[in-house]
Every structure is written in C-alpha cells, then in structure tokens.
Design a protein around this nucleic acid. Structure first.
Length: 754
RNA sequence: GGGCUCUUAGCUCAGUGGAUAGAGCAAUCGCCUUCUAAGCGAUCGGUCACAGGUUCGAAUCCUGUAGAGCCCGCCA
C-alpha cells in the first residue's frame, strides 16, 4: 500500500501541474490519512495551502484539481468537503486485490528496505558489579524491539551490550574485596552475586566517605587499565560470574546480544587523547585533559569541559564512548549508531557527539542517535523501589509478573470449570507474565516516565499483552473448531455429513501442548446403548441438585401461577381457542426459564459436546446397523487436557484453488475496517524505523485486535456460507499472522490457547 | 545559575500544522442457546498548564511565565 500512496502522490502532482501550470510542479499534495473515518481513507490538504498563492478560494482550487485527477484504478471519485479538503476512499476491489497479495506474501506486504544499512543498536548495558535491576528493564526491552524491527526490515543489525566492566567502580570493588574477602579475587565463585552486590554497596559507601580509600580505588583503576596481572585476574573472575547471571535473565526474556563492554575499548583510549590533541581540541585544566564544549556552560557562564583524561591518568566513560564511536564507524563500518539509554544521559551523549563531530570523526553519511527513555516509577509516582526501599531486581520483577499471571489464570480456570495440565498453566503464565511486562513498557511513548503497575499490565482488557494474545487465541480457536489449515485454504463446496471420520487436528507448534489419543468405546457396547454415557450426566445432576430443584420449583410455581391467571380470566374461557393459547404461552415461557437455568448450571459447551457425543453414538450405531462401520472404534486426537471429546469437524469435498483466486469480499463494515487496518502494517513499520518509537507498533496491534474483535462479534466465520466463509477465514488468517509478526517484533511470543 | 524533557478527561496515556482533540481504565447501562464474554455496544467525562506570537488553519511551530522530573569537572 506504500507504493500506492506514492502513486497517488504522483497523480496529484500531475494534476497540480495540469490545473495550475508548471510553476506548481513538485508541490507537496499533503496527502495524509483521513482524520476521521467518515471522511474516507485518505485526504489531501493541498487546496487550503494554495489559497494564498493562487488567490482563489480553496474549494474552487480543490474542484479544479479533482477535475484533472485520475485515480479511478484504486479510489472512488474524490469528494470535496469542508473548507476545501479533498477526500479519498479506497475501492473495495482494490482492497480485495491488496489483501490477496498480502495473503500470498510471507512478509505480509512489508517491504524490505531498498538500501540496507549497517546499524548498531547499543542497549541493555548493565553494570558488571551489580545485578540486573529495574533500571535495565527499559533499555533491554526497547532496544531489543528496535533491533528486531530494523532486522526485519532488512538492515544489518549489530546488537551490542556495552556492559559496565571498567572504570572506578571496579577500582572500588577490587580495593574493598582485597581488604575484606581476598579469596573472591583469586577463586571462581567464592561468593554469590548477591554478596558481590552487597560488597559493592559497602565499597561505594567507603569511596564516598574515606579519602584514603578513594585514592586507593583510583590507583587500582589505573593498575587495571594499564594491564596489571593480578588486578586483571580478579577482574576476569568478577566479570565471568555476573555474565552468567545476566544470561539467565536474557534467556528468560529471549534476548540475544553481543557483549562488548567498556573494557574492549581500553587499548584505544590513548589514541583518542592523542588525536584530540592533534586536532587542537584538548586543553589541560587543573591537571585534567578536557575538551571545552560549545553551548554548555557552568554556573558562572563559562564553557563546560568534557574530561577526556583525569589528572590521575585514568579515563572516563566519555573517553570510552568516543573510542567506541570511532571503532563502530571505522572497524564495524556502521552507518547508524543507536544508543538506547535513559533520558538522564541526554547531556552526556550530546557532549560526546559534539566532540566527535568537531574532531571530524563523524562523517555526514553516519547518523548517531540517542534514543532516550524515561524513568520507571512506582504507583506512588516515585522511582520504583521495593517495600523496603531497595532497588527492584529484574528477576524478582519477572517472577512477580509470572506469579500474578499464574494466579489469575487459575482463578479463571476454576470459574470456567476447565482442567488444564501444569505444563499448560506454567507455559501460559510465563508467556503472559513476561509478555505483559514487555508490552506495558513498549506501549508507552518511551520519552516519558512510565508508571509500573502489575495490575494494569496484566489486565485482560485494554491496551495490554493479554488482550492481544486473546485476540490471537480466538483465531486459533476458529481454526481448531473448524479443522482449518490456514496454510492451505481452499474453497469448500457443500458439506457432506460424514460424522464418524477422524477429525484433523492442527499441530500446536508454538505451544507444544501435549496431544493424546483418546479411544472412545466402540459404538453399540453396553456402556453406550445409544452412544450416551450416563455417568457424567448423573454426576452433573448430583452436583447441581440445588439448581435442578430450584428449576423444578420454578416450573411448578409457574404452572400454579398460570392456572391462577386462567382462573382470574375465567371469562375469557368462553372465547374459542383462548385457553389453549394461554397454556402454550405459559409452557413456552416456562421452558425458556428452565433452559436458561439449566444452561447456567452446567457449562453450555460441555452440554453441547455431550449432545454431540450422543448424536455421534446414535449415528455410529445406525451406521453399524447398516454394516458400514462395523467394529471401527471412534478415535479422536485431542489435547490431553480436554475433558470431553471435541466435536468432529464436518468434512467437505475440497476443490483446490490458487491463492490468487481466493474469494475475498468485503461487505460488512467491520470486514472493511479490519481489511484497511491490516493493509497499514507496512506503513506503520516504516514510521517506527525512522522514529524508533515501538509504541506506534503497539498502538497499531491494539487497534487491530479491537477491529478483529468487532468483526468476530458481528461476522460468523465457520457458519457463514461459501464463498463468504473462505473470505472471512482469509481475514482471520491475515489478522493472526499480523498479530504474530507484530508481537514477535516486540519480542513477545503468541499462544495457541490460553 | 545553565541544559534537557515534560504539563492533554477522575486515573494511565495516544495524538504526524488540518475538519467536532482520541484510546484504555474507573463509573453507569445494555448484550451470552451462537467460532473462548479474557469479548462487543452505549452513556458520562476537555480552559490540550497559562499568556502572547507565526499561520488561511496551532494540542502540535516560536517566545515568555508557572509547575514537575532529570542532568551539570575528574562515577557510569
């Protein structure tokens, strides 16, 4: 559809020239999506902006423009509205053709970029001396999603984990450990990471309070950075230990990235200083080597320095970042450098980028961009902390989300009288919990602070991961129920009732739900004289005796009430046929009431399934009598967890058709709305590519789920007649594939059932 | 003192110079004999912080004011 919009633009440009002369060649037709569906799908605002230069009323301009406009191959005739808006609406046969193209495309119509770029996404970047905590959440999730989106568009992405494994913090830690627990520096895993974090905190405290300790720490950094054997060994042990811990978190989040920590750039640091000196940018101030910045001033209004080398000879993170920029441009040959870090570092990056630019290290062909994000706040509006005021560990945060998802799921299973395996429940809770954490983060505009709330992110309604996962599950429900293989859609002719054929079951690939063969008793055995198993029915009756008794009382009461009414209106008895009519109405109302009570007392689906089983049994028995199916057991492939057999799908005679010929017809309003939305995926992804705002994709997926649910509500799929049935199945399939793709670009897997 | 970001419905937030500023949650009211109601529909809710300016047109761009958050010489 992107190419169509490009074509529309060209047509408008041509019309502008033929209407108003070559002076208007290259005028932007100002094509934008319609601000309101009632105005159509697209609109041009160009007539309004030309009012002044042309000296004509905008409506008149719009009319002339429309006369010269030929867009009949994909749009309805353009209309002029309001002060001079030109409104456009897609033709439905154009939309149908586009959907057909999308259906056959594994990329769902999303273009590969024409000029693939080498992009570095620098994200996550935890500090080696600490455990991963809530502060790393956003960088990790947002960075991963950005990387996934750029990769999908065909860019060559290098995901870099710029871990904090260098600098003063290590000086502090090593100095402190040497004092209190020297074995940690020489023996692998002498303490666990939690203790290391405790040591780090104490070291930091000492560093802030004790001048002597501070000096020793700085000396330690210099030793480490100059390659001292013993310091180096201690450092390696510490890094190795926390690296393993990080990996556990990354595995849980399904995030892959290449570690290239600050230490990697250590050998390049002297070169940075030399080259800055050569460029004449370096100034010595109080013993430190600095670059004075343009546009940054201190309290007295003097230029602020960026410290490149400290007075003790050590280097700062600014130096490392400068070295990294050079390496990434020269050795990695990256054309776009994306830094996903918190908004608090905006100054730092602006400064570093400025110095790199002034030093001539940043060619015009390279884009460096800081992608900032806001703080994670608690529901009290302050920085998120545990109840005891500690920083929240990432593993605890994920555990909590999963535990809550687990609890919610079990409550619901109980309410719905569903039985599921532990594996199923764990898998769903895991996916929903982690997905909810990711989605909540990504769905918010990253630039603002974000309020973390388990209740909101796990809510089943609203713009949340569970809502979207549910929309996907609904579609899988359709395919299961109808035995639909979306990969192999065919147009089906009139159904033939062939009830005893084994049902085809769709393999459950992403979910790995266990299936098991359930052998039903052969038709005609004593256990099922009429194919009906009495035992569960008896259990039902016993379990629901209260409801049944109430129903009975209701029926009896109704009869008495009707009789009383009839008595009251005794006179009417003389009217012919009045009495039987009243009785009929009474009985009908009573039956309705009874049905309703019964149906609430017992899950409808199960009752329906029992009825089906009864029906099957009867048909089998009849078939056996006719010697068509003798001694053939009924075998059904079912999820292990299913308590009752699924209903065998109707089998149809199949007439394969080419995908291009798949009937797609968009008639209902919800079908059209869904179709139009599906076709916007490509456009949305290209906006995310430039703005690096994954919340745009979230918004799109949420609206897609809403539009699907509206469609689902109003348009029966499986019960529809052909060719409408297949047309709707195509819409279902495209929605499912779009959701799956979209969520995967956010780093969230889908579920087949939940 | 300087810099950056922000201020939109009761709450959490979208919003790309364009028509009557949108969602979700909460509240109120409907819709299950129908593919999972974890759904759908309806109602209620606005001085887009404030004041100027630019523009045919401003929540959006510019200036100022007020408020909030973050950052600011040898931590990263």
């Amino acid at each position: 559809m992107n190419s169509t919009i490009a074509q529309l633009k060209t047509r408008f440009e041509q019309a502008l020239v033929s209407a108003f002369g070559t002076g208007y060649a290259g005028t932007d037709p100002m094509l934008v999506p319609a601000s309101n569906p009632k105005f159509g799908d697209y609109q041009s605002n160009v007539a309004l902006s030309l009012a002044k230069p042309l000296g004509q009323p905008p409506r008149a301009i719009a009319e002339q423009l429309v006369q010269h406009l030929d867009i009949s191959d994909f749009c309805e005739p353009a209309t002029i509205a309001g002060p001079g808006f030109i409104n456009l609406a897609w033709k439905s046969d154009y939309l149908e053709a586009e959907l057909r193209k999308m259906q056959t495309d594994t990329r769902l119509g999303v273009d590969m970029v024409k000029a693939s770029k080498r992009v570095i996404v620098d994200f996550s970047s935890p500090n080696i001396a600490k455990e991963m905590h809530v502060g790393h959440l956003r960088s990790t999730i947002i960075g991963d999603s950005i990387a996934r989106i750029l990769e999908f568009q065909g860019h060559d992405v290098l995901r870099l984990n710029h871990v904090g494994d260098w600098g003063t913090q290590f000086g502090m830690l090593i100095t402190y450990l040497r004092e209190v627990a020297p074995q940690v520096l020489t023996t692998a895993d002498a303490v666990d990471l939690g203790d290391l974090v405790a040591f780090y905190k104490k070291a930091k405290q000492r560093f802030d309070e004790d001048e002597l300790f501070k000096e020793a720490s700085r000396q330690e950094v210099v030793k480490l950075q100059s390659g001292d054997e013993e310091s180096r060994r201690a450092w390696e042990l510490l890094c190795e230990q926390s690296r393993r811990e990080f990996q556990i978190i990354y595995d849980r989040l399904d995030i892959h990235l290449n570690e290239r920590g600050e230490s990697f750039y250590n050998p390049l640091l002297p070169g940075v200083v030399e080259d800055l000196e050569r460029a004449g940018l370096l100034v010595e101030d109080n013993g430190a080597k600095c670059v004075f910045l343009e546009g940054f001033t201190n309290k007295d209004g003097n230029p602020l320095p960026l410290i490149i080398q400290k007075s003790d000879g050590g280097y700062n993170y600014a130096t490392t970042d400068l070295a990294a920029i050079r390496y990434r441009i020269n050795q990695d040959e990256a054309e776009r450098l994306v830094y996903v870090t918190d908004a608090g570092q905006a100054n730092h990056f602006a400064q570093v980028f400025q110095v790199a630019r002034r030093a001539g290290w940043l060619p015009d062909t390279v884009e460096v961009i800081h992608v900032p994000f806001g703080l994670v706040k608690g529901e009290d509006g302050k920085k998120l902390k545990t109840r005891s005021g500690e920083t929240v560990r990432l593993r605890d945060l994920l555990d909590e989300a999963i535990a809550r998802a687990h609890f919610d799921l079990e409550v619901r299973l109980k309410e719905e009288h569903r039985q599921e395996t532990t594996e199923f429940i764990d898998h769903v809770a895991q996916t929903v919990g982690v997905g909810a954490v990711k989605y909540a983060d990504l769905s918010q505009n990253r630039t603002s602070d974000y309020v973390f709330s388990y209740d909101k992110m796990l809510a089943l309604q609203g713009n949340t991961a569970p809502y979207m996962l549910y929309a996907y599950v609904r579609i899988q429900g359709i395919s299961r129920k109808g035995g639909i293989d979306f990969n192999n859609l065919t147009v089906e002719t009139a159904p033939i009732a062939e009830l005893s054929s084994p049902p085809s079951a769709k393999p459950d690939s992403s979910n790995a739900i266990e299936h098991t063969l359930i052998e039903l008793p052969p038709a005609g055995t004593a256990a099922s004289q009429f194919g009906l198993n009495w035992q569960p029915l008896l259990t039902t009756v016993l379990a629901n005796w209260k409801s049944i008794a109430l129903t009975g009382l209701g029926i009896y009461g109704s009869i008495i009430f009707i009789q009383a009414l009839l008595g009251l209106f005794h006179g009417i008895n003389s009217v012919p046929l009045a009495q039987p009519l009243f009785e009929l109405v009474g009985i009908w109302a009573t039956v309705q009431f009874a049905m309703k009570r019964l149906l609430f007392a017992r899950d409808r689906a199960e009752l329906f399934a029992e009825f089906q089983a009864f029906w099957h049994g009867t048909v089998d028995q009849l078939a056996e009598t006719a010697d068509l199916n003798s001694n053939r057991p009924v075998v059904a492939l079912l999820p292990k967890s299913a308590s009752l057999p699924d209903i065998a799908p109707l089998h149809h005679t199949l007439e394969p058709v080419t995908l291009e010929a798949l009937p797609i017809s968009l008639q209902e309003e919800t079908e059209l709305a869904l179709a139009k939305h599906l076709l916007q995926l490509n456009h949305i992804l290209s906006t995310v590519e430039t703005d690096l705002l994954p919340n745009r994709l979230c918004q799109y997926l949420f609206e897609l789920s809403q539009k699907f649910n509206q469609f689902y509500d109003r348009c029966p799929v499986l019960q529809a007649d052909e060719p409408l049935r297949t047309s709707r199945l195509v819409l279902c399939d495209l929605t499912a594939r779009t959701l799956k793709l979209g969520l995967s670009l956010l780093g969230i897997p889908v579920l087949e059932r939940m």
